[in-house]
Computed example of a mutant assay.
Amino acid sequence: MMQEPVLVLNANFEPIHVCSTRRAVGLILAGKADMIVNGRGHIRTISQLLPRPSVIRLETQVHRPRPRVKLTRREIFRRDNYTCQYCGRRDVNLTVDHVIPRHLGGPHKWTNLVAACSACNHRKGGRKVDEAHMHLAHIPKEPPANAAYIFGKHLSENGEWEPYISGW
């Protein structure tokens, strides 16, 4: 119950983070944040009844650089919709493939990495895509660093976040 995600908004209502309910309640009690949406009921303590926040807003504006999506296996699979980019099969046992292999000078960047099933990755081997007579379903690119992409994975369980995420 205290580990449920809470959307943290900047003072200008820009979504900046997701924290736990425990952290959100601590920020509210310290006077550093205000509760915007209470969609989860209450927390009963010995002496009081505290609302369980779903969305909070910081009191002061936090200036930070524009977010970027981190380059991880999970994010590559998410960008490619958990689908092999060579045969189009949705698979749970995906691998990450370098379109231009590392030993041929291919960088470890968003534009050179795709999700591939193990059969296609093995078939391609250490060759380039055209040398292996294979085709990519989509040209790989860095995913957008907008709020809808970054926080969108939480929307299925937290529908009340939609108005705060969709505007950014």
Rank of each mutant, 00 (worst) to 15 (best):
N81E: 15
N10K: 05
R123P: 04
V25C: 09
M35N: 09
M134W: 04
R78Y: 06
G152T: 10
C117K: 01
M134T: 01
K32G: 13
P140Y: 04
R23I: 10
I43V: 15
C87F: 03
R57L: 09
M35W: 08
Y149W: 14
I139D: 12
H135Y: 07
R66F: 13
M2G: 11
D34T: 09
G39S: 11
A116N: 04
V18N: 04
N121T: 08
K153T: 14
K109G: 05
A24Q: 04
V55I: 10
D91V: 10
N158V: 04
R23S: 11
E75Q: 13
E4H: 07
R89K: 15
S156K: 14
L29V: 12
K141P: 04
I100H: 08
I56A: 01
S118R: 15
V18A: 02
R89P: 04
N112F: 08
M2W: 14
E157S: 14
E75R: 10
L136V: 08
I165H: 03
I16D: 00
E131T: 10
V99P: 02
G167S: 13
E162S: 12
V25G: 01
R79T: 04
L50G: 00
V37C: 06
H108I: 07
L27W: 05
I165W: 00
R52C: 11
V18P: 03
N112P: 10
G41P: 10
I100L: 13
Q61C: 09
L71P: 09
L104C: 03
A116T: 06
G159R: 14
G126D: 11
F77K: 02
N121M: 08
H103L: 12
I36V: 15
K153V: 14
P15E: 01
E59F: 07
H103D: 15
T111G: 15
V92Q: 12
L9R: 00
G106K: 00
C84H: 03
R123V: 09
H42N: 15
K109Y: 06
G88C: 07
S166T: 12
P140K: 01
A115R: 01
Y164A: 05
L9F: 02
C87W: 02
V96S: 07
N81F: 10
V62D: 04
E75S: 07
H122I: 14
L7Y: 08
R66V: 14
M2K: 13
H63R: 10
D130S: 03
P140L: 00
I100K: 11
G31I: 02
K153F: 12
R78M: 07
V8I: 12
V62G: 01
P15G: 00
A148V: 11
A119T: 13
P144H: 07
E4T: 09
T21L: 04
I46T: 15
N93C: 12
I16C: 07
P67G: 01
D80S: 01
L9S: 01
R68M: 03
E160F: 12
S54A: 10
R73F: 00
P163G: 07
L9A: 00
P65H: 06
N38Y: 05
S20M: 11
L9I: 05
S20E: 11
I100S: 08
V8K: 01
